[in-house]
Design a protein around this nucleic acid. Structure first.
Length: 635
DNA sequence: TAAACCATGACGGGAGTT
DNA sequence: AACTCCCGTCATGGTTTA
């Protein structure tokens, strides 16, 4: 195999030096003076006690209202007593996690419950259709609903409800087998009184409904109103997971409401794509990608934003940093934002940091002032990154940046085909040939390594582009294909390091990190290159090869902290987290990028959105982050 | 058997035009 | 507004090769 495309002999700087020395040098980055802002936030501890006059049934109702089954709630109360609601909640979360892990069936049931169907109907539908085809189950459920004149309803999103939206989907999901028929005769958007009545019937208090109607204006739809109320509740009830007495149970917990919406979102995306797109664009919650995609700013561009206001509930500790592909299906980022305390995502294209594009969104609660980049700056054009290619680069190939580094690489045979296509001509092949070659080059990130000869990037070249030490992914019996795949799934280190750089002065004594979906350790490498000591890293990563890579890096860089690796994210339940938190005194940072498989545009087969098989692990990130926050606040 | 190879489009944003 | 065209996208599953 040709290796002559190697950029290793780049003369502008040396990627070949010993890793440790090199990394140590990076750590000594010169920096502008940093005025440390106080990143601490004022956090009241949650009042967790149940009120004295609260009978057992009220407590049960409360948790049932959050979406847990009555059986589980009873069990949790029996095991933990009535006194400590936190313990009960923890137990419930644990049950849910383990039941999700053990039974695909319950996941399926939950999925449809989340859409607002009753458990009874869902079980019946699954029994009739089997577990295999979710679409037929959905059809059946919709049929049931139509029969009962009780289809699911979506409260919090205004984007799937408008005047031309089919009214049959407007219903109250509280009790599907409700005996009264008010829904049929009530036109919720007709006048103020009807809407008020409708909202109270939905379980909102009269006060909430009135305030919402006042704030949203006389022409607001039910969906807008519920959206407003939901937002208000989220802001208010964020920390208080416990009853506000004048609210109906199912409205208490914003996460519950959000989860119900999540299921419906899937249905919505599938059936109402066109309509949604139109409506989403008018929706305040629609996330739009910035152009240029520089987030709050990048070191190489003039526009910088140094101030932002985080939603109160988003403020740490711990700090969190979540990453995923920017070009996810419509609605995914607003959903993720909703789950992550309504923090606005920061979209950044790594082409501003290195020679390859990498459009990613980051949701985090880090300060954004006084960021600084890793030094030295990595090469930012193809020619700088691979000087040897300059000699062979045709004038008709205008690329200066590579496209996104993906998980697959072109075959060596494609090189041959392109060679053959070009050989017949001189310096200026016909336009159609140029287009063919350029298209292939762009699709596969090919670079010129000889006359008429292109080649895909080698793993070590991708390592360099992504900011990893050379040979980072080598070893552990990892093939070229596997290395490319692991790298393709990774962070761009310089980009992430720029965002994490604010931690340097906050944690001079080192940092304790919970790293979910660690992959090949992009976050760890970034922190290390920033010179942030790693006191302890708890790393969750499914792939054994990747775990070996991180472990090997950990040893080779003479880390003095503790590295714990956990293969399965489900293993990280309340118990395990409590152990780890008490052992390390809590986590300072929860970092991770959950799988993008079902979000990425390259996926022909299962681009199913957030509810997809792998991408739904996003909810585990949220689950774990929620648990960490809860536990550390009650310490 | 492990690694390499290859066929497989849809979706969404941006820019321009009508 | 609505239309066109252009372009890029952390991939999967089956088949062939070494």
């Amino acid at each position: 195999m040709d290796r002559n495309s190697s950029g290793g002999d780049a003369d502008n700087f040396d990627w070949d030096t010993e890793d440790e020395l090199e990394i140590d040098n990076y750590a000594i980055s010169s920096r502008s003076g940093v005025s440390l802002t106080n990143g601490e936030s004022v956090l009241g501890t949650t009042e967790a006690g149940s009120s004295a006059d609260s009978p057992n049934s009220k407590l049960i109702d409360h948790f049932v209202g959050m979406g847990f089954s009555e059986e589980l709630v009873a069990k949790a109360i029996e095991e933990n007593g009535e006194e400590n609601s936190n313990l009960i909640l923890e137990a419930l979360l644990q049950y849910s996690a383990s039941s999700l892990a053990s039974s695909s069936n319950s996941k399926l049931i939950d999925h449809f419950l989340g859409m607002g169907f009753s458990e009874e109907m869902v079980i019946k539908a699954i029994k009739e259709n089997g577990e295999g085809n979710t679409d037929t189950i959905l059809e059946t459920l919709l049929t049931y609903s139509a029969l009962e004149k009780s289809a699911p309803v979506q409260h919090a999103d205004s984007d799937n409800y408008s005047s031309d939206y089919d009214g049959s989907f407007l219903d109250d999901f509280t009790d599907i087998d409700s005996s009264d028929d008010t829904e049929e005769t009530l036109n919720p958007d007709s006048d103020e009184e009807s809407r008020l009545l409708y909202l109270t019937k939905m379980g909102y208090s009269e006060a909430e409904a009135s305030v919402a109607m006042e704030r949203c204006g006389p022409d607001s739809s039910i969906a807008e109103l519920t959206d407003f109320i939901c937002a208000a509740q989220m802001a208010k009830a964020a920390d208080a997971l416990f009853p506000v007495e004048d609210r109906k149970p199912f409205c208490n917990d914003p996460n519950y409401k959000k989860r119900r919406n999540a299921g419906f979102d899937l249905w919505k995306r599938k059936k109402q794509m066109k309509l949604d797109k139109k409506l989403l664009n008018e929706d305040d919650h629609a996330v739009h990608l910035p152009n240029p995609m520089i987030g709050f700013g990048v070191p190489t561009e003039p526009d910088q934003i140094t101030q932002r206001t985080l939603p109160e509930d988003a403020i740490g500790p711990p700090y969190f940093y979540y990453e995923n592909v920017a070009l996810a299906p419509v609605g995914v980022w607003s959903e993720m934002s909703r789950y992550l305390y309504d923090v606005t995502p920061e979209f950044v294209d790594s082409k501003y940091f290195c020679a390859a594009a990498r459009k990613r969104g980051y949701i985090h609660n880090l300060p954004i002032e006084n960021r600084y980049p890793l030094l030295p700056f990595p090469p930012r054009t193809i020619h700088e990154a691979f000087p040897l290619t300059k000699k062979w680069w045709p004038s008709w190939d205008p690329r200066t940046k590579l496209n996104c580094l993906q998980t697959c690489t072109a075959s060596a045979k494609l090189t041959e085909r392109i060679l053959k296509a070009l050989e017949a001509y001189g310096d200026e092949p016909p336009l159609n040939v140029q287009k063919y070659v350029l298209d292939e080059c762009r699709k596969w990130n090919l670079v010129w390594v000889g006359k008429n000869k292109v080649a895909p990037l080698e793993p070590d070249e991708v390592e360099m582009l992504l900011g990893f030490p050379r040979n980072h992914t080598r070893g552990g019996g990892s093939s070229r294909t596997e290395r490319i795949k692991s790298l393709g799934n990774s962070f761009q280190v310089d980009t992430v390091a720029y965002h994490l750089s604010v931690l340097k002065d906050m944690f001079p004594g080192g940092i304790t990190v919970l790293s979910l979906f660690s992959g090949i350790g992009g976050a760890e490498v970034a922190l290390h290159r920033l010179g942030v000591p790693l006191k302890a890293v708890v790393s969750v990563e499914k792939s054994e090869v990747n775990r070996n890579i991180v472990r090997s890096w950990w040893e080779q860089t003479n880390q003095r902290g503790t590295l714990i690796d956990i293969p399965d994210v489900q293993e990280l339940n309340g118990d395990r987290l409590e152990q780890l938190i008490s052992r390390f005194g809590g986590f300072d940072l929860v970092v991770g990028g959950s799988p993008c498989n079902n979000l990425a545009g390259s996926n022909r087969h299962h681009r199913d959105g957030l509810e997809g098989k792998e991408s739904s692990l996003f909810y585990d990130y949220c689950r774990i982050l929620d648990l960490v926050r809860l536990m550390q606040r009650n310490q």
